[in-house]
Nucleic acid binder design. Structure first.
Lengths: 178, 178
DNA sequence: TGAGATATGTCAACATGGCTGACATAAAAA
DNA sequence: TTTTTATGTCAGCCATGTTGACATATCTCA
């Protein structure tokens, strides 16, 4: 044990509870927040590892995901979902187009617009990235019991800024992109 | 409405369900995953905005949080929690020490070690950053009902890699740092 | 029709926060 | 005394965000 080889003196404490004990509810809240930090880290770890092999990053995954889920999405719509600048998106999009994962089609009604689609290889990439992530979440929800999914959705939606909740709900359920 | 000024032709669809409808459970799974993405984004947004005013970033918040929660933590222990390199940590730690938010104390038993503590100004910073984040999570859990907290913890813990679950549980509940 | 607004792209520069590799020092452990 | 450990530091690279400025094609409206 670390504490046998390395006993701490009283001025070197590391336990969370040493200095001034927190109220139980505050303590519980902090624990759930730390859990979210650790859970999110592992949640993104599987795709991250796979992307590295392709010379891509998390940003590419996000684009591939949302283009896959909203075929024909325009650049402006994608920007509004990702909330990044067009310059940031341009870099990622260029990589994906060069690697033939994404293609752009000029709009027929509005020829200024570029409608984004996954190619076959993009679809394949998206699926491969999704597999371990889906497995992880599906397992976690099963383990947590039958009510878990509904509760989970309620909490997550409540974490979203109030002004954007309906937009997020519309978006994820299938709806128009803002 | 966007769709009145901008009707889409049939080859420019953006709805998620257009091409090939997914099985209901798969569809629900994807929705929960997207929700996690949006929720996490807003979850970190309040501290991010405050940090910017101080010229600090998210990385500094993580250090201030874990040093605050584990006073006297050593550099090696902090590295193992954050899972970053010592060079990355050195940069943010230097900023925090320069700004007098964190101080280092040479170990009494092992004089190679540096035990990290928040200064009064560090404690103040940590609390200010925590307030909106705690409020957001507390509200979300309340809104989701009395069972929400327990379910939430179950799910988040199950999202963590299996090998590390017990370590994470020990860490967040108050325990020794690995 | 012509002026202005809009959708997209691109160049350049910068910040943050990861990373690797190499090397230095002090102190503990063997 | 030698080796290992805990920490620090220099230098450089990479991914991904940012701002500002400007170009082009196309649509919209008066």
């Amino acid at each position: 044990m670390a504490d046998i080889k390395n006993p701490r003196s009283s001025d070197e404490k590391v336990a969370a509870s040493t200095s001034s004990p927190l109220p139980a509810d505050k303590e519980a809240l902090i624990q759930t927040i730390e859990l979210l930090f650790f859970a999110y880290r592992d949640f993104v770890s599987d795709p991250d590892a796979m992307l590295e092999a392709d010379g891509l990053g998390r940003a590419h995954h996000r684009v591939v995901h949302f283009v896959g889920r909203h075929p024909g999405i325009t650049v402006a719509e994608l920007l509004s979902i990702l909330r990044i600048t067009k310059q940031s998106l341009a870099r990622v999009l260029r990589d994906l187009i060069e690697r033939d994962h994404v293609e752009q089609k000029t709009g027929t009604r509005d020829r200024r617009q570029r409608h984004l689609h996954l190619t076959d290889s993009g679809i394949d990439l998206e699926r491969r990235l999704a597999v371990p992530q889906h497995a992880r979440v599906a397992r976690a929800l099963e383990e947590a019991g039958p009510e878990a999914t509904a509760t989970w959705r309620k909490i997550l939606l409540a974490l979203v800024n109030e002004e954007e909740r309906t937009a997020v709900e519309t978006l994820i359920t299938n709806g128009e992109v803002p």
